[in-house]
Design a protein around this nucleic acid. Structure first.
Length: 619
RNA sequence: GCCGACAUAGCUCAGUGGUAGAGCAGCUGUUUUGUAAACAGCGGGUCGCGGGUUCGAGUCCUGUUGUCGGCUCCA
């Protein structure tokens, strides 16, 4: 069994590197107040309250100081102390880096440690050749490496603001991120990996592959979808629509704006206002809202007529475009934008149907993940934070909804973790979390159980007892949003989308101008009528009709490279665009009724007939 | 929104106070090509935007917008 990272030498090394950095900071910036400095997945950080703002160029200076200190070969000693002694030590003016002036955060940390916990400090010190004492003591659980001499291969990465204890209302401290490794090779490999990850960034690939763009004239976080990106979207939409039709969903379409009355009723105005675009007013002073969610519209449709228990479950699906005014610092390409399209649906079910419908939704999500080839994800069940008042609805409903989710997961054997505070304001939810190229986690698909909106809108169905009952709602989006899912898929595949999804599936490469007509003949056979035909030179031979026979009605997405370039150049460009298959057409092929096939992954596959090629294409 | 960084041609970047450059892309011409970049020529920039310092600003200062890395928040 693999050693846990938390138990590894590397973890200790990084923790000690964080201490070493703190010591360097203390010596360089007297008055800097330390707070916390843990190891993290790929390194470490330390949050520090600096007396003056820190610039990124200061990192080199701190790094240099760290190297000097490391060489002093300070032994790192653990000492366990009583609470009163700990307080005294933190306030001890005679110890470098301690004393009342800089004790603010350490005292708070001390107070937060439970009474029965052992309190420990780590102490490292040495007097250098000039007779100067270098000493650093930090309240810390440990463990650490034995001596600072072990800390050799490290790098300070970046500087960031971080709120004390993660609370926006607290002071923002300066966080320095760094990383450390056991060898120079491992450090170099890590830095190289980061460079490689940047090449998979969906923003870079999105531009190179012509999927989407942004324009400052359009606005922050508002993507423009280019033909290839839009084609990719439509392919995904068509796939999911088919899956949903099989499962009894019905399409609905709703507007982009609505009267504020709708959102007052839903609770969004109170609970979601800071995420909404500025309101609009018409001449009669009616206020309109640009919709941040689709649910209230679907609720109105449900409520528009009497519902019998025999009509339920009702499943309304819409690829609904919503707009949310994300803070400027948090928009990130199409992974986090201000206008995006959810693959949304709302299920109105009887309490008895909740469990099976929930399971049905989770199974749909699994089918979607499978089709998209996504295997690395975790499942989070977001529940109510008992300390927060941002939620609507009764506790009884919250408990019932949360139980429905966990029981459904248990019954189909889905591993999940509970995450208090990650619920929607109207109910608990199950989220799929996936990492991007840079290792950041994103919430993708989601399923949410909701007793509260049906209550707010007084939704009903007539039961078999002839009396009105309250339905339960399930909000669900298997992709989450098209934008985020496409951004993530772009990074997962480095832009080399699987055949069924790639906006261009087959590129036809005529070798010389006189082969262009044959290329169009082949394109039409593979793609069907309607292909946009460019200029064709005179005296251009057709592809032999016999070689096109028997292909059937094919509907592949095909492009032709009729540029006046060499074949090598065309191949290079097509490969760069990550097209799964290239068909090369020249004199030999027109003569023999073949095509030269080249695959994105396997290279040159040699000459074959179109029929043979069509037979080898993925389903 | 907050902390930090960046912004020069369509793209990637060079240019450390003294006449704005390269490669790729584009256009034109020649070449008509068999599995990852043919050759030559040409065009292209209010150096993100506004103020300031200076004899002189892409370069220094300042404000602002956009983007990037974090924090907080989320699909």
């Amino acid at each position: 069994m693999a050693e846990r990272y938390e138990d590894s030498y590397l973890y200790k090394l990084r923790h000690s590197a964080a201490h070493l950095m703190a010591q360097a900071v203390q010596e360089l910036y007297p008055g800097a107040k330390l707070s916390i400095g843990p190891p993290i997945e790929n390194g470490f950080y330390y949050d520090i309250d600096f007396p003056a703002p820190l610039k990124e160029e200061d990192l080199a200076k701190i790094e240099k100081k760290m190297k000097e200190l490391a060489k002093l070969d300070m032994r790192i000693l653990r000492m366990e102390v009583a609470r009163d002694d700990a307080r005294a030590m933190i306030l001890d003016e005679t110890i470098p880096g301690m004393g009342t002036a800089v004790a603010e955060y350490k005292l708070q940390l001390l107070d937060a440690i439970a009474e029965d916990q052992v309190l420990s400090f780590y102490d490292q010190q040495r007097t250098d050749r000039e007779g100067t004492l270098h000493r650093f003591i930090d309240l810390c659980r440990g463990p650490h490496v034995e001596t600072t001499k072990e800390i050799k291969f490290f790098k300070l990465m970046t500087i960031a603001g971080a709120y004390w204890r993660g609370n926006v209302n607290n002071k923002q401290l300066t966080r320095i991120y760094g990383t450390a490794f056991e060898t120079q090779e491992a450090l170099d490999a890590h830095l190289y990996m980061l460079e490689e990850a940047k090449k998979r960034d969906h923003r870079l690939l999105g531009r190179e592959l012509g999927l989407f763009m942004f324009s400052p004239r359009v606005g922050t976080g508002l993507p423009l979808w280019l033909p290839k990106g839009a084609t990719l979207r439509q392919t995904m939409i068509e796939f999911l629509q088919q899956e949903q039709l099989k499962r009894g969903y019905e399409p609905v379409v709703t507007p982009h704006i609505a009267s504020i009355k709708l959102y007052e009723k839903s609770g969004h105005i109170i609970n979601y206002r800071d995420k909404m675009f500025p309101f609009m007013e018409d001449e009669e002073k009616e206020t309109y809202i640009l919709k941040p969610m689709n649910c209230p519209f679907h609720i109105e449709i449900y409520a528009s007529q009497m519902r019998s228990y025999r009509d339920l479950p009702v499943r309304y699906a819409e690829f609904g475009t919503v707009h949310r005014y994300e803070q400027s610092g948090e928009v990130a390409g199409i992974l986090r934008c201000r206008g995006f399209t959810q693959d949304d649906a709302h299920l109105f079910v009887t309490p008895d149907q909740l469990q099976s419908e929930f399971i049905g939704v989770v199974e749909l999500m699994k089918a979607v993940l499978d089709k998209l080839g996504l295997t690395e994800f975790r499942v989070r069940v977001g529940t109510k934070d008992p300390l927060s008042d941002k939620y609507v609805g009764h506790d009884d409903n919250w408990t019932a909804a949360t139980n429905a989710i966990t029981e459904a997961c248990d019954s189909i054997g889905l591993d999940y973790e509970i995450s208090p505070g990650d619920a929607a304001f109207y109910g608990p939810k199950l989220d799929l979390i996936i990492k991007d190229a840079l290792g950041r986690e994103w919430q993708m698909g989601t399923v949410q159980v909701d007793y509260n909106l049906p209550e707010r809108f007084d939704l009903e169905y007539i039961g078999d007892d002839g009396k009105p009952h309250r339905p339960v709602m399930i909000h669900r989006a298997p992709f989450g949003s098209l934008e985020r899912m496409i951004g993530l898929l772009t990074e997962q595949y480095s832009g080399a989308f699987p055949f069924w999804l790639n906006p261009v599936q087959i590129a036809i490469l005529p070798i010389a101008d006189r082969h262009i007509q044959a290329a169009y003949d082949i394109a039409e056979a593979l793609r069907g009528p309607g292909f946009k035909v460019g200029a064709v030179p005179a005296d251009c031979a057709h592809y032999p009709a016999a070689a096109l026979a028997g292909l059937g009605d094919l509907r592949y997405r095909v492009s032709i490279d009729d540029s006046r370039e060499t074949l090598g150049k065309k191949i290079r460009e097509t490969q760069r665009m990550k097209v799964p298959f290239m068909l090369i057409v020249g004199d030999n092929d027109i003569e023999a009724g073949t095509i030269g096939v080249r695959s994105r992954e396997k290279g040159d596959l040699g000459a074959m007939t179109l029929q043979a090629f069509a037979a080898m294409l993925p389903k």
